[in-house]
């Protein structure tokens, strides 16, 4: 079954997305390989989140094709829930449900299984993302930022989707929590053999966890490749992004 088309988890071809007169993504093409962690960088308001939301079907596209796991993606139906898990920037946990119920929600809606097994799976997922069984009965309002992200990750992984979308997973976390979260994503990606599509500004996560990095500028992917290759890129925006003062400091430590 490992044909050439199976090499890619997500294939985006000639994607055009715009609002009103404004074109945000202009004939954008991007391939995400199976089992890799792809980081997407771009200017704030440059269309990173729009690209992610278009792939998962939240924003309609003007033209172009999107294939997810070899199948043309069309909107977001029930089947989408098993195809991918999404970690929203603010977690997007349902505030009226406990942590346990949040993680069980996708299971309950998509599968028929006993309450006992559902409880065990929920706890298993929570422990896999580094939380304890005691946290299961808390409400989202009682959680810290890092815990919220972990619960949201557990919920995104509830159905063991092959693809995981992360929207700025480390934003709003302190460097220690962000580092732990990066390690967690890397570990889970290895154990569950996930393909991870990560929108991020965090240069540390780009260098430590991402296999490849794609740079989005002017509505197109202007550079894609491992971090080392991107650092060599001649594109002016990519140079400005990775060779600005803030970036220089981080890269210094990398060498």
């Amino acid at each position: 079954m490992d044909g050439p088309q199976d090499e890619f988890a997500i294939r985006v071809r000639d994607l055009v997305v715009g609002f009103g007169r404004q074109t945000v993504l202009d004939h954008l093409s991007l391939d995400v390989r199976r089992g890799e962690i792809l980081g997407l960088v771009g200017a704030s308001g440059g269309g990173k989140s729009v690209l992610m939301r278009t792939i998962i079907g939240l924003i309609p596209r003007r033209s172009g094709t999107i294939e997810v796991m070899g199948q043309s993606a069309s909107g977001h139906g029930r089947s989408a829930a098993t195809a991918w898990g999404i970690l929203f920037q603010q977690g997007a946990l349902f505030s009226s449900l406990t942590v346990r119920q949040n993680v069980q929600f996708p299971l309950r809606e998509n599968l028929v299984l006993s309450q006992e097994l559902m409880d065990e799976i929920a706890i298993a997922k929570l422990e896999m993302v580094g939380l304890r069984a005691e946290d299961a009965d808390k409400y989202p309002a009682e959680l810290s930022g890092g815990m919220t992200k972990r619960v949201a990750l557990a919920r995104a992984l509830a159905l063991d989707p092959p693809i995981l979308f992360l929207d700025e997973p480390t934003s709003g976390l302190d460097p220690i929590a962000a580092g732990d979260f990066d390690v967690l994503i890397k570990t889970l990606q290895r154990t569950l053999e996930l393909t991870v599509f990560m929108v991020t500004h965090d240069l540390a996560s780009l260098t430590t966890v991402c296999d490849r990095v794609a740079a989005l500028a002017d509505g197109k992917i202007v550079a894609i490749g491992p971090m080392r290759e991107l650092l060599q890129s001649e594109h002016p925006w990519v140079r400005a992004y990775f060779h600005g003062k803030r970036s220089q400091m981080l890269q210094h430590e990398m060498r």
Binding site: E120, A124, E127, R132, A133, E134, A136, R190, T191
Partner: peptide, 18 residues
């Protein structure tokens, strides 16, 4: 081989009940 990571992970979970 490609299941061993997952099996090891699952062996760790649900070990203690609150």
């Amino acid at each position: 081989d490609h299941f061993s990571g997952l099996m090891d992970e699952v062996r760790q979970v649900n070990r203690h009940t609150p």
